[in-house]
Design a protein around this nucleic acid. Structure first.
Lengths: 128, 128
DNA sequence: GCTCTACGCAACCATTGGTTGCATCATCTA
DNA sequence: TAGATGATGCAACCAATGGTTGCGTAGAGC
């Protein structure tokens, strides 16, 4: 949490991004969604990592609020916090649309340049 | 052709995700988009990290194809590969829509349980 | 009580984001 | 042409983290 930048990245988002930026954690979330929950042991059996690694990842996900856990007996069952994940997805979409907009703008500029090159120089320059 | 049927994570996608998963690299991409290109030095001046850190990140981005560089004289200027970034954005959207779909499904199941709870207290099985 | 199993903790390793320091090479100017 | 300046590249080093193994603890079942 060292950077307080502007643009499509903020502090909270950085935690979210780094949480879902890890491939193992994404698969973990996916498993939790598909199976409706799971323990470190049950999830570890379905992933190419050890139970301890899964436990660490679940700790990270828990810390950013994407999952929460219920302990019953000797079992600690995790499940996805749906509202938080929905929020994370909206963050993804937000960054994506920002980049798309910038890409569109670049494309328009590039086309404008090409047109003014091929044909005679019109006065149709567009600024944003 | 990278992620079909195996969930939202594949090897190629993982490289893309880890590339854009880093907050500094996201800001770097943003800067490159806004300014239409830049060098490690010019970009480093606008970020809270050293020129060397920026150079490393540019190397990562270059390796996954999100940026490319043109050397002219003693200057090495990077610019965004628009097609690759557009592809990355579509990957983001893909994972987001997958999760949204799963969240919707969970929501439906939850509602079903609420409805059937009046008759039977037993939980509903999942059918995938 | 004994055993089995799920969990937590700690040590350790490899990768990586970040730093500093130095060498190299192109440009500009006296 | 030589020398100063500026941009890059390379290497060593540090800290955080994803991953491992090993061990200890505590419920659940016999």
């Amino acid at each position: 949490m060292s950077s307080q930048g502007r643009g499509p990245s903020t502090q909270i988002d950085d935690a979210l991004w780094s949480a879902i930026g890890d491939p193992t954690r994404r698969r973990l979330l996916d498993l939790l969604l598909v199976e409706g929950g799971g323990t470190a042991t049950s999830l570890g059996e379905q992933l190419p990592v050890t139970r301890q690694a899964v436990a660490k990842h679940l700790g990270v996900l828990d810390h950013v609020g994407l999952v929460s856990s219920v302990t019953s007996g000797r079992e600690k069952r995790y499940h996805v916090d749906e509202a938080q994940l929905a929020h994370a997805v909206s963050q993804l979409a937000s960054v994506g649309s920002t980049w798309n907009a910038r890409l569109q703008r670049i494309k328009r500029i590039a086309e404008t340049i090409q047109h003014t090159r091929q044909e005679q120089p019109r006065q149709e320059e567009q600024h944003d």
